[in-house]
Amino acid sequence: MPDFPTWSGVSTNRYIARMGSVRRHVHINRDPDTVWALVGDLARQHEWFPFSSCRVEGNKRWMTTPSGITFEEDIITHDHALRRFQYRIVGNPGITSHLGTCDVIDDGHGGSTVVYSTDMEPEALAIVVAGAAGEGLDKLKRLMETT
């Protein structure tokens, strides 16, 4: 019997019945301040995440997908020192719980690790967000490393 690789990308917490917990990350060969300059500008997330548009007013944000769905969000954390933002999707009867977190972490060698996490109910939608986050992080890396 062969060895099998680690299966990643979706929650393996077998004891959580309903909450989907997902995480994607990417390493970027740019310093964290440069990366945070884009990631931390919450009105520009559609430049790297697969949204079509983004609007911010105070601690509220509205993100619209290419299929025309708009998510209303409360911005929970926007910490430049920690290079972290967190948000909740609100006002959507199909989403009963949500917390999204994006961290830009200094790798100590002039680069950055960006981690995008989502805890979400329904759990099925968390997987979709994880996929979008993975694509977004890949695009973020391309943008950062080619400009």
Partner: peptide
């Protein structure tokens, strides 16, 4: 049967592709 199966299965291509939806 198991010997034949393990020797016949192709080696898994890595890295694993991510699951992006249910």
């Amino acid at each position: 049967l198991l010997d034949d199966m393990w020797s016949s299965l192709p080696t898994r291509v890595l890295p694993l592709r991510s699951c992006d939806a249910p």
